[in-house]
Amino acid sequence: MQKTTPSKRGGSWIWQALTGVLLILLLGLHMIAQHFVVSGGLRTFQDVIDYLRNPVILVLEAIFMLVVTYHAMVGVRAILYDLGLDEAGKKKATTVLTILGALIIVWAAYLLLRLTSM
């Protein structure tokens, strides 16, 4: 039998909604700046590097990465929760997804740092 001790998750629903709205804006900007205004839809190598050296763009892209990773991991967790996980399973899911999210963010930060110093 599953424990019915409820885990508080109200906070994460609200955050999921707020980050979702934020992502509509950030992804909109990302799509326009990185693809739509670019002739051919994809920047050339030097163009990407130069572009990322613009501090405004760099900050926007970094925020975008943080928000999208959080939103993605919380979303996957919600799907896993609904498979009827018990409390131990929920904890495990949260731990695994937190680690995965952290890895994605570290990877993204490494990429941005390397590219801007190229």
Partner: peptide, 11 residues
């Protein structure tokens, strides 16, 4: 009702 087994469990 303020939990993932309550209102926040609803999608």
């Amino acid at each position: 009702v303020d939990s993932d087994c309550g209102v926040w469990g609803c999608h």
